[in-house]
Write a protein that binds this DNA or RNA. Structure first.
Lengths: 281, 281
DNA sequence: CCAAAAGTGTTCTCAGTACACCCATGT
DNA sequence: ACATGGGTGTACTGAGAACACTTTTGG
C-alpha cells in the first residue's frame, strides 16, 4: 500500500483499516405508465450474469457526488443528464461483496423519459426494469415469482430508493424531473400515479399543482397531440426554477398508496432501527 | 497493506483505492428546555483542542451500525442506551480530514435526559452544547458570534442532523425517546417545542397526541410534582411500543418553526442537490 | 386567595374529497 | 356522433387553529 494522500508527518497511514468505497445508483424513470429502474447485467465475476444497479469504485481523490455523476454518465451514456441526483444512504455490511470489505454510498437519480435502454459504454447489457416486476423486500407487489434477482444487497437498496422517491414526491417539486421541460398537467399526474401506484382525482390534482407556489409555471404553448387518440389539447407547463425546493402545502398520497409499501412514510431513508443486537435486514 | 478479507482467488486486493471509514454521531437530548448535542474535545492532533462530534474508525470486519453503537457507548459511557439511533448520511469530501481520505457515515441518536455531561472513557472532555449556541450553516440562530467552532465538517453534519430530528418529529413517535419511560404530556410538549424552536397550543397538542394511535398509552400513575412550583398533578403516559413506527396523521410543525431553518422540510437527508459542477460544501 | 399547570370543550376556517358538468379534438 | 382527455365549478366534510373555561395543586 502506498502512503495516504497528503499525509502530514506523524501519521501512520497503516493505522486505519482499508475499505473500498463505491457508489451505487438507483436511476428511475417513468415509462409506459410505470416506474422503471435502470439495471445492468454484470460481466465481472461477483454475481457475473446477474442484474445489478449501476455503480463503481470511488477514486481516492474524487468527491462522492462526482463519482456518482461520473458513473451515471458512464452507465447511461448520457452526457447531458437533466435530472436530479441525491444521496440515499450507505450500505456496508461485511460480506455484502465477497471480494473485500466494501462500503457503498447509494444514490437516487430521477431521469426524464430517456431515449432507450442505453447500453453502457462498456459491453454490459442495460435495461429499464419495471419495479413492480422485481421482488423487492416488503414493497409493492413483492412478486415471489420474480424472474430477476439482483446482485449484492441491491434489492434492499432499490426498495429503499423507491420509498425515497415516493416520499420526495409529497414535499418537493422533483416530479418535474421525470418529464420533459415542457409538459402537460396530465403527464405530471401520470408520473405521480406511476410512482405512488395509485389513482388521483384529476380535478383536485390540477388545483393543487396550480395553487402550490414554486411548482409549475404556465407557458403560452399548448400540446399538439403527443399522446395518440383524441382529446382536447392540453396547456403546457414548465418547472418553476425560482421556487423553493419545497412544496407548501405538501400533497399527501392517499392511504391506499401507503398500504402498498412495507414501512411507509417513516423510512425516509433509514435502513431500519439500527438496534445493536438486531439483525440489520 | 494486507490482503483483503476473505478475498477469493483471482482478485487483486490492490485494485481498489483504500479509504478510511468512520462513524460520527450527533447525539441529541433535551435539557433545560433546549435542544442539546453531545460534543467532545479532541485530544489527537487533527483539530486537537477543538470540539467535535463523537465518532471513530469502523473496524474492517465490523458492521456500520455496530460501530455506531460501540462509539456511542464508548463516548457517552452509557452501557444501557435507551434511545434511538439511525443513519443520517455520508460525508466524504476529499480533504475533510487532513490526514487521509476519510469517508464518514454520520448517525443521529436520540437520548433521554441523561445523568450529566458524561466524559468519555478516554481522557477527553465532553459536554452537552445548546445547538442554538453553535454557528451551524443556515440554521436557527446562526450565531456569527459563536465561541465554539466545530472540527472537520461537523458543523454541516450537525446542521443536517438537527433538520433530521425536526422532520422525524412530524411523522414518528420518536419524541418519546427524549423523555423517561413515564412522562407527562406537558413534558412531551416541551420536547417538541425545544426541537422545533416554537410554541404549540397546549390543548391542540394534547388532543392530537391522544387521538393518534400508536403514540402514547395512558398509565394509572400520576406525576407527583416533578417540576418545582404549583400546578395540578399531571397524568403519566408511556410510549406505545406496539404501534407502527409512523404517526397518522402527522403533526406538522407550524410555518414559523420551518422559517427558522435554512432549507426546511426538503432535506430529510440529502446534503444538497449534488449537481456535478456545484460545490458540495 | 392567588398563581401555575393540567384538563375539557367550542367555534371557525380552510384544505382535501368527491363529484357533476362543459370544452376541444380525433376517428 | 361519440369516445377521449382537458378544463372548471361546487357542495360536503374533517382536521387544525384559536380561545374560553374548569380543575387541582403549592404558596
Amino acid at each position: 500500500m502506498t502512503t495516504g494522500p497528503q499525509a502530514p508527518e506523524g501519521y501512520d497511514p497503516h493505522a486505519y483499516p482499508p475499505f473500498a468505497v463505491t457508489v451505487d445508483l438507483a436511476v428511475f424513470t417513468v415509462r409506459d405508465g410505470a416506474l422503471k429502474a435502470l439495471l445492468i447485467e454484470r460481466v465481472d465475476d461477483p454475481y457475473a450474469g446477474a442484474w445489478a444497479l449501476p455503480g463503481g469504485f470511488v477514486d481516492i481523490d474524487e468527491d462522492i457526488p462526482d463519482a456518482a455523476w461520473r458513473e451515471l454518465h458512464e452507465e447511461t451514456g448520457l452526457e447531458q443528464f437533466a435530472g436530479h441526483l441525491e444521496q440515499l444512504g450507505t450500505y456496508g455490511t461485511p460480506g455484502r461483496d465477497p471480494r473485500m470489505r466494501v462500503v457503498s454510498v447509494a444514490h437516487v437519480a430521477f431521469a426524464p423519459n430517456l431515449p432507450d435502454p442505453t447500453p453502457g459504454s462498456d459491453a454490459r447489457n442495460a435495461r429499464w426494469c419495471d419495479v413492480d416486476d422485481l421482488d423487492l423486500p416488503g414493497l409493492r407487489g413483492s412478486h415471489a415469482d420474480a424472474e430477476i434477482t439482483l446482485a449484492f444487497d441491491h434489492a434492499r437498496i432499490l426498495a429503499d430508493a423507491v420509498d425515497r422517491v415516493a416520499s420526495k414526491f409529497e414535499y418537493t417539486p422533483l416530479a418535474t424531473s421525470f418529464v420533459a421541460d415542457h409538459f402537460t398537467l396530465g403527464e405530471l399526474q401520470h408520473v405521480y400515479e406511476a410512482v405512488w401506484g395509485t389513482r388521483l382525482d384529476r380535478s383536485n390534482f390540477r388545483r393543487w399543482v396550480k395553487d402550490t407556489t414554486g411548482f409549475v409555471r404556465p407557458t403560452s404553448g399548448t400540446a399538439r397531440r403527443r399522446t395518440a387518440g383524441a382529446g382536447r389539447p392540453a396547456a403546457l407547463y414548465t418547472a418553476d426554477e425560482d421556487g423553493p425546493g419545497t412544496l407548501t402545502p405538501p400533497l399527501m398520497r392517499p392511504d391506499d398508496a401507503r398500504a402498498l409499501r412495507h414501512d411507509p412514510r417513516a423510512p425516509r431513508h433509514e435502513p431500519g432501527a439500527l438496534r445493536p443486537d438486531e439483525e440489520n435486514r
